[in-house]
Every structure is written in C-alpha cells, then in structure tokens.
C-alpha cells in the first residue's frame, strides 16, 4: 500500500484531497468554513459577483477560507457567452487568487448544460492569456479532446445536470473520456450522495467536484464527512483493483475437508 504517495498534480501544484467543493448554498460563512474543513478539500470554488455598493457587508467569504490555506478556484457560473466568461476570469485574476479558473459557459438555463463551442473558444483565449483553465463540459470525448488540445489543465465532464443529485448517469461516456484523455478528468456535477462520489473515483477519475450534494443535505457537515469517506473509499478501491464480475457463484470457503 502506498497511501502516503497518492497525490495528484493540477496546474503545477500537488494535492492530496481528491474532493473539490463549491461554496454556494450554505446557511452562512461559518457553516461553509466548517463543511470545507470536514470534507478535507484543498481546492474550493467561488463565484465572482457584483459588490452590493449600498450595503457591502462587513465580511467576505475569503475571510473564512484563506487563500493561504486553500486553492481558490473562481468560476464563471452564470456566463452564457465566451466573452462574459473571459471577462469574469480576468476580474477574478485581478482580485488576486491566482490564474486557476473553472470555466463554465452555459448554453441552456433548464439543464445548465455547457455551450461546447463557446467553452472551447473561451478556453483558447484564456490559455493564450496565461490562465490555467479547468472547463466544465459535457460527457463528450471529442469536446474533451478539443479542450485538452487547446491547453486546458484538466477536463471536468458532468455526470448529471448541475445540482440534480442524479448520480453518475454516464459511466460509459466517462469511461471513454478516461481512456482517451491524458490530462486529469474531474467529474463536475451530478453527485447526490457518497456512493456516487465513490463510483466516480472507482472508475479512475482524478477528483470529484461537488457543491449542492453537501450544502443541500439535511445535515451538511455530516454529508461533508460522508463525501470525504466516499471519495477516499472509491479511490482506494480503484487503486486496489476490483474483482472481475461473474455470473455464477465462486465459493469463498474451502471446498475440501467438509464434515461428513
């Protein structure tokens, strides 16, 4: 067992935790902070939004999640054009948390599926501007390959619609992506409970990204722990190598020396 050496690299940094979490939908910043701490994530996603200029509030999310401790991964959630996504990334970089971005260009409000051509276009621009781009994308191997070709540091295919909690609905498509891509594959969206996270990890995904599954649980802090364990269990099972599936039984106990 080489537990201590099981790390992965993303955009030049090394991580131990394969659980990446969003910070939306929590009751307050303190609950966000505790959930992130319990789930063990080292990378957290954040959104970029207008400051309320009439009431800016005293506190900021990053007062609770220090960029010294966590890799802050700004997203472009809510962007429907490549241009808006690129603008959002430029703003995020200037806010001083580095050049890693989660690129999302949404194509449809009901499914929140990505606009694939616009995502590729935005990725190209951002890579040229020196960003480390992690794109949210459909489970389409060709789209993933294009994003790898333009220089993305990972691809993040959805497993089911964002916030749906439907679980891993596309194992075969993900399997193809896992076989064909050389950059890390991170499942982003769809996970509903710990076993879903385990399934993604058992398949060999580098990491899993989730938000609603933890923040929307009846007890988010308990689910944060469950997700940590689910991701770890799935990863360990992947490394251990599961048995072949068989149609008929194979006895676990010796077949000899039975009593008469």
């Amino acid at each position: 067992m080489r537990e201590s050496t099981d790390t992965f690299e993303l955009a030049g940094r090394t991580y131990r935790s394969r659980l990446i979490v969003g910070t939306g939908k929590y009751a307050d910043f303190e609950q966000t902070r505790r959930a992130v701490e319990i789930c063990g994530a080292e990378i957290v996603t954040v959104a970029v939004r207008r400051v309320n200029i009439t009431d800016a509030g005293k506190e900021n999310l990053l007062d609770y999640l220090s960029p010294d401790r966590y890799t802050i991964l700004p997203n472009t959630a809510g962007c429907y054009t490549a241009e808006d996504a690129v603008r959002t990334c430029r703003l995020a970089r200037d806010a001083g948390v580095g050049k890693l971005v989660k690129l999302e260009v949404i194509g449809d409000p009901a499914t929140l599926f990505p606009d694939v051509p616009a995502t590729i276009e935005a990725a190209k621009t951002l890579v040229a501007e020196g960003f480390d781009v992690l794109p949210y994308i459909t489970d389409d191997v060709v789209a993933c390959l294009r994003l790898q070709d333009v220089g993305c540091k990972a691809v993040m295919p959805l497993a089911a619609p964002i916030g749906s909690g439907l679980g891993i609905r596309n194992r075969y498509n993900l399997k193809i992506i896992l076989e064909k891509l050389s950059v890390p594959v991170i499942v982003d969206a769809g996970v509903g409970t710990a076993s879903d996270a385990a399934v993604a990890m058992e398949m060999g995904c580098t990491a899993v990204l989730m938000n609603t599954a933890i923040a929307g649980a009846r007890d988010p802090l308990r689910m944060a722990k469950a997700m940590r364990l689910g991701v770890e269990a799935g990863r360990e099972a992947f490394l251990a190598g599961r048995i072949e599936k068989r149609l008929y039984a194979t006895a676990s106990s010796p077949l000899s020396d039975l009593i008469d």
Binding site: T23, A47, R49, V51, L61, N75, A92, L209
Partner: peptide, 10 residues
Amino acid sequence: VEIVQFVGGG
C-alpha cells in the same frame, strides 16, 4: 464601472 468580489458558488 463594475466592482466585483468572490462569493459562494459551485
């Protein structure tokens, strides 16, 4: 002018 900050998001 647009002034933005980081907020919770997924």
